[in-house]
Design a protein around this nucleic acid. Structure first.
Lengths: 245, 245
DNA sequence: CCCTTTACTTTACAGTGTAAGGTCAATTGC
DNA sequence: GCAATTGACCTTACACTGTAAAGTAAAGGG
């Protein structure tokens, strides 16, 4: 593996743009650059040519590493899931699920433009399946039946996805106060009153609250004592009887 | 290539393609055609030219009614929200919320390709705000404090959005059995076992179940008796002490 | 009758994803 | 040592995109 790819004195020239001197392109480097580009300029304006330029390469070079633009974006989505690292302490499944959901949404906040790639694609690619595997494994390890684990994955996953999208949408809006030029004050009295509570100042708190509510249901279903709402679980007593876990 | 829509006798020509004779384009007709096109061919292949053709008009004619393609897609999203009609019986708020969530997801199932427009945009357009208004109004009408109503809207909304996207993704995948060529049997044992439970056969049931769990939390927060899991709420009475509603 | 407005068309341009084939250094086979 | 192959990238080309700019026909108003 030559470090100097392409002799510098020849017409072919070395890639001087935004990457080490001559090491060849790798899928990982391409995906990284793509994510950076999307983060910086939005998904709508992302193009293979701009990506090529950012890598100091013609656009068609990308097709040597990915069959299509869509495949490349799939890889970006993959890259995003691997960014959510699962907490190590699995002693409390509910707390663990809460942490996973938090970290998942954190990824959305870090990559608001790219996150839609993750939210709209199916979790059946390599890294995504590994993610599913680990979550189900932790649940199963806590004694949860496999079908119930799937149910819970779906439920928490759906909520996390939706909350992440809402978070992005709310924060992304350029602070137009939601009370749109007073138009709604008359025709939309409730929106006018609820406006501030639907703004970016409260999304995070609302996420936590609703997540806790959902997880309380999960805990109930697992036959565990419901954790106290709004905070860390402070072991209550027995609660509902397990029906299937 | 002016087919023949240019003065056929003396009148302003007749648009013979896929629409009544000569009546002029309306935003509503455009949006309808756009939605049909997206439903039929996917959002990715949707273009202003194809839409124009479907309406018997040049693409640029659309720009007389909408400032941009994006604005047109905004209008399609608007069209989608108006499609979810809110149930009339508001006697039981929890049951009402459940119905709304169901109908919302039903829209996603009816328009799997277009739904992403709704899921990724902010609810601050005309029809969307009317939707929010009515939901908050019903909650407030049931005695829920305005900030709590906003919390609940966010929670149920996020879950419904995420569940709808999951529904679309799962149903959209061309039945590749999730057990991808046996690859995972060894490396992904839990996915292999959970596969069937994550397939299209169970999304709807899982949606109902998780929705019920979330709504149980909502009911608890409203100081109402928790509805029975997994079924219709069998209206109980006043119940526990309210903390904030 | 002219003037403006409405609704649409024509033309044009910069940008898109990507198929087909080319180029040249490095590696391999003999 | 040299030919053949391969890997990694480039060049060209094409069909297609959104849309700016300007044109055109008909309807309505003064």
């Amino acid at each position: 593996m030559p470090t100097l790819r392409r002799k510098v004195t020849s017409m072919r020239t070395a890639r001087t743009t935004a990457r080490g001197q001559g090491e060849p392109l790798t899928p990982a480097a391409i995906v990284d650059a793509a994510l950076r580009l999307i983060d910086g300029g939005g998904l709508a304006t992302f193009s293979t040519r701009k990506l090529g330029q950012a890598l100091g390469v013609e656009a068609m070079a990308l097709y040597h590493h990915f069959p299509s633009r869509t495949a490349l974006l799939d890889a970006v989505a993959e890259r995003l899931i691997t960014e959510v690292e699962l907490p190590a302490d699995v002693s409390d499944v509910i707390a663990w699920l809460r942490d996973v959901a938090r970290r998942y949404v954190a990824v959305a906040r870090r990559h608001p433009e790219a996150f839609v790639l993750l939210a709209t694609r199916r979790f059946n690619t390599e890294a995504a399946l590994r993610f599913v595997e680990r979550v189900i494994a932790v649940l199963a390890g806590a004694g949860v039946r496999i079908d119930v684990a799937a149910d819970i994955f779906r439920g928490v996953g759906a909520f996390a996805n939706g909350a992440a999208l809402a978070d992005i949408a709310v924060r992304g809006a350029r602070e137009e106060a939601l009370v749109e030029r007073g138009v709604d004050a008359g025709r939309l009295p409730y929106v006018a009153r609820a406006g501030q509570w639907l703004g970016p100042a409260h999304v995070e708190r609302q996420f936590e609250r609703n997540l806790d509510m959902l997880l309380a249901g999960v805990a109930w279903r697992l036959g565990q004592p419901a954790p106290a709402f709004g905070g860390r679980s402070k072991g209550a007593k027995k609660g509902g009887k397990s029906r299937e876990a």
